[in-house]
Simulated assay, not measured.
Amino acid sequence: MTFPLNADQTQIQDLVRRIARERVARRADEIDRNAEYPQDMFDLLKELGLFTLPFPERYGGAGSMLSACVAIEELGRVCYNTAYLLLVQWVPFGAILAGGTEEQKERLLPGLAAGELRGAFASTEPQSGSDVARIKTRARRVDGGYRIAGSKIWCTNSHIADFILVAAKIAEEGEAARINLFIVPRGAAGLEIGRKEEKIGARGVPSCPVFLDDVFVPDDGRLGGESPQGFKVVMEAFNQSRPLIGARGVGLAQGAIDHAVDFVQQREAFGRKVSHFQGIRWMLADMQMQTEAARNLVYKAASLVDAGVTGAELAACSAMAKCFASDTAMRVATDAVQLFGASGVSAEYPINRYFRDAKVLQIIEGTNQIQRNIIANSLLGRAPA
């Protein structure tokens, strides 16, 4: 570890690493194989009080994005899905904290912090993933609130969420349509959650389509109230949380290295341990160098958040962290599978799980192509349409 952690962060790292190895690791393969929501792991994270880690102390958190990245990395090192449970809780928390009214914060944040409430975020649509501006879901003003009609896909956690933050376009009279977020409670009339997607990775935290058939949301269900900047504020807040996605990549890469090192030290070929061959040793050296570089970039981005840095500087660094770390996870996991040989493609060994989860991470939470656009824009400005 070359990036300095303070005493509190080191304590969090030691605690989560021990819990991950002793209580999480043994469940990882089963969670992936059965593709069932790991309620026991959610309860464990709730018991540890990790749901507010990156958020202010008033909600029971440490107020540190770096501390949150450390926790995500240690969990992701043994079980991507358990690490994902933290993130899907943090996304609605962060959105409401950044863009919600005081009433909305008081109503929802304590429950999310305690693990008594679960939320989900629904933005992606069949024709608009990265291109959020083209969403077709609409909210029309009616007496006392709004009626929302449309559909979403890849809504993670929606099958158990107590509420879903739904992105929809609304056009007030005399104004151009703009995107807003609406708090749609579970059980709302006209809300339907579809069957979960069969995913190659991230299998333990289901993602489902969401259908909204004229769903009524009262005025106090519009995130941020009447503020026209609500959605923009939330999107900017997501720049601050992007290092968490990178931390998942670092955890995957380090976990793949852990498995690969153990395997090559036990296996023999041509009368020698596989770990004695120079080609193998160099592969592992490259894997560790790439992972350490990714870790330092992720921790730098998290430290910028903790230092209060915002705007273009943070956006670019966060994009680099997410992109580089997830690409590194994919490269390292691919090489780890190669080191396992035929065993690498066998379901009897866990290394293929790291490979599949890493591929997912390159796509979700902002594709790596979009991250490269953000980085290029910081250097060159936006390209003409």
Score class of each variant (00 low, 15 high):
334 T>V: 07
230 G>F: 09
299 Y>W: 15
326 S>G: 00
168 A>W: 06
223 L>Q: 07
257 I>K: 04
264 V>Q: 10
323 C>S: 06
363 I>Y: 05
262 D>Q: 14
368 N>C: 09
142 V>P: 13
148 I>R: 10
132 V>Y: 03
172 E>N: 10
132 V>T: 02
61 G>N: 03
139 A>M: 09
359 K>R: 09
319 A>W: 01
33 R>S: 12
157 N>R: 06
285 A>R: 08
115 G>P: 03
190 G>P: 00
117 L>A: 02
61 G>H: 01
324 F>Y: 13
363 I>M: 10
179 I>N: 05
234 V>F: 02
179 I>T: 09
232 K>S: 10
366 G>R: 09
57 E>C: 01
175 E>T: 06
382 R>K: 11
188 A>G: 12
359 K>I: 02
91 V>E: 08
167 A>T: 10
296 N>M: 15
118 R>S: 10
146 Y>T: 08
17 R>D: 08
102 E>C: 07
191 L>C: 12
57 E>N: 02
301 A>D: 05
156 T>Q: 00
236 E>L: 06
135 I>H: 03
164 I>L: 14
65 M>R: 05
318 S>T: 03
378 S>H: 02
196 K>N: 01
148 I>G: 12
297 L>K: 13
177 A>T: 03
366 G>K: 05
249 G>V: 12
247 A>R: 13
3 F>C: 06
270 F>T: 11
338 Q>G: 02
261 V>L: 15
340 F>P: 01
344 G>L: 07
301 A>E: 09
202 A>R: 08
193 I>L: 15
89 Q>H: 11
236 E>R: 10
208 C>H: 15
236 E>S: 01
129 G>F: 07
245 I>C: 10
270 F>E: 12
262 D>Y: 09
235 M>S: 04
106 E>R: 14
2 T>P: 05
319 A>H: 05
115 G>R: 09
253 A>W: 06
221 G>S: 12
144 G>H: 13
100 G>A: 11
83 A>R: 09
107 R>M: 08
29 D>T: 14
258 D>L: 13
317 C>Y: 00
165 L>Y: 04
219 D>I: 12
349 Y>T: 12
23 R>Y: 01
51 F>H: 00
175 E>V: 01
316 A>D: 04
206 P>D: 14
23 R>A: 03
120 A>Q: 10
60 G>E: 04
339 L>A: 02
95 A>W: 06
275 S>P: 04
191 L>H: 11
179 I>H: 00
226 E>S: 09
326 S>P: 02
153 I>D: 02
275 S>L: 04
308 G>Q: 08
28 A>E: 10
57 E>I: 04
372 R>G: 05
72 I>G: 00
114 A>T: 01
335 D>V: 00
